[in-house]
Amino acid sequence: MNDTNVQRRQFLKTSVGAAAVAIAPGMLLFDMAHGKTEAVSNKVRWGMLIDTANCADGCNDCVNACNKENGLSGGLSPTDSQWIRKIELKDKLTGRELSLPMMCQHCENPPCVDVCPTGASFGRADGIVLVDKHLCIGCRYCMMACPYKARSFVHEALHDQKPDVPRGKGTVESCTMCVHRVDKGLQPACAEACPNKSILFGNLNDPESEISRKIRTVASIQVRADLGLNTGVRYQGL
């Protein structure tokens, strides 16, 4: 082998090595920034089963956990955002009383997504309904369309936001099912915080998941099931 060939091989080896060293940290950072590279798929449908019999009257732990996780102020004025709230119910005929948490029901056919002019309201393949804060123009039509009053409009400038939870003045927002936690394999903050384990979170598309097994055996309903929205959140004991 002559010298020229050796030199050429050497040069190529060094170049490839240098390129690898140059690119690798970038790739690593890119990976870190994007988290899982695997796209969400409709093999999963995230959902919740809420046991109203266990939901204690006056307990607000899920609401507080949501506020803390998502950086909400916790204010209760009509212009403050409330992603999850406790509703007290009393049957008008029988007088039976109960209490339950209400939030975005993550519908399969969400009216908010249908009416959004820019497509800012969207449903992920795994059933989580979100608002893209870069596309939302703040028209509030989704708030008019939502049957569950699940959405809030950001009425003033925000401070001390959480890096994982984008929010912005002049845009509409609602429960994200703690998508930033779910994507890391964690539970939504409300489900984790409930002292009575009344919020069961899981994959409705997996027949072997705890939530699927439970909704097969106990009576549960969707709120305003008459609307045909196929909500991801179901209630037991209502």
Partner: peptide
């Protein structure tokens, strides 16, 4: 949201 119930929140 809950027809037939009195509600408050």
């Amino acid at each position: 949201i809950f027809p037939g119930y009195e509600v408050s929140s």
